[in-house]
Write a protein that binds this DNA or RNA. Structure first.
Ligand SMILES: [Zn+2]
Ligand SMILES: [Zn+2]
Ligand SMILES: [Zn+2]
Ligand SMILES: [Zn+2]
Lengths: 142, 142
DNA sequence: GTTGACCTTAGAGTTACCTCTAAGCTTATA
DNA sequence: TATAAGCTTAGAGGTAACTCTAAGGTCAAC
């Protein structure tokens, strides 16, 4: 049985975060010492590691809560439930990627059109674009 | 002079958001009516549109505050200051893109390895990966 | 002259995920 | 036996960008 700071060191989370995850139902200490200290079993450690891994991959705490409830009773759940969560996450990631790609494109164009020199910004093309509502049909560099 | 809801309709922000932006120094109403209503001049509208455009591109409110202070007195600032803000944003976006790409890759691999069927999740490969600390050197599909 | 849309303010609530503090036990070390 | 490190709890604070509410004043129309 590990104490909280031992668990923290083992899986790479702070004790604060572990208590926070506990409050949100993700991690449990299956026992307490006489003085009330949290004590983690091997199964608890595995569960915590599962949470950490899922978090590293990018699942939200809510996703992880769902995955955990499946993990807890695998035979009452199907692979489909797991892939649904995973696919939703993938879609979310793809959506964000598309947003970022658009931003990247606009920012690059803005930088292409401004020399970035030390002269006064009186006629700065970036400020002009921002004043004119964005990169209109008249593509800058292209 | 426009009232707040007219400005809102004009530039595509809610009145709530406009007041929120005002509280954060991004938008101003240069006048008030006798009864205290905000009244926006053409210059105010342009400023608000600038904010909206910058926000659409993805600049943070803090970035926009800086851009606005440059815009307000262009001759006291250089193009470099503008490109610094823009370049920093571009780097931030690129960093986030890299993160998302990594997530995308892992999620795709997870999905490749699980059939997603309706059978019990007893041996679900996704749960196994999560239990085993992630996609180790043993690349799944590849 | 009253309905109803619109305006005002301060301030609370939301989402996601922590991060920290205070006040007070417990345990290990010197 | 002290001293420090570590543990407990409830609850506050922080970030970003909103979003909404309450309680009330204003304005145009019918
Ligand atoms: Zn399966
Ligand atoms: Zn410039
Ligand atoms: Zn320049
Ligand atoms: Zn599966």
């Amino acid at each position: 049985m590990l104490k909280i700071s031992e668990l923290a060191g083992r899986i790479g989370l702070s004790t604060h975060t572990i208590r926070f995850y506990e409050k949100h139902g993700l991690i449990e200490a299956s026992e307490r010492s006489e003085s009330g200290y949290r004590l983690y079993s091997a199964a608890d450690v595995n569960r915590a590691a599962f949470v950490k891994t899922a978090r590293n991959i990018g699942f939200s705490l809510e996703d992880i809560a769902q995955l955990l409830s499946i993990r807890l009773d695998r035979s009452s759940h199907s692979c489909q439930e797991v892939t649904d969560i995973t696919r939703n996450k993938l879609h979310e990631v793809s959506r964000k990627m598309a947003e970022l790609k658009a931003m990247q494109k606009v920012l690059s164009r803005l930088l292409d059109n401004c020399d970035g020199g030390l002269e006064k910004a009186t006629h700065c093309s970036i400020l002009e674009v921002l004043d004119n509502g964005g990169l209109a049909a008249t593509g800058g560099v292209n």
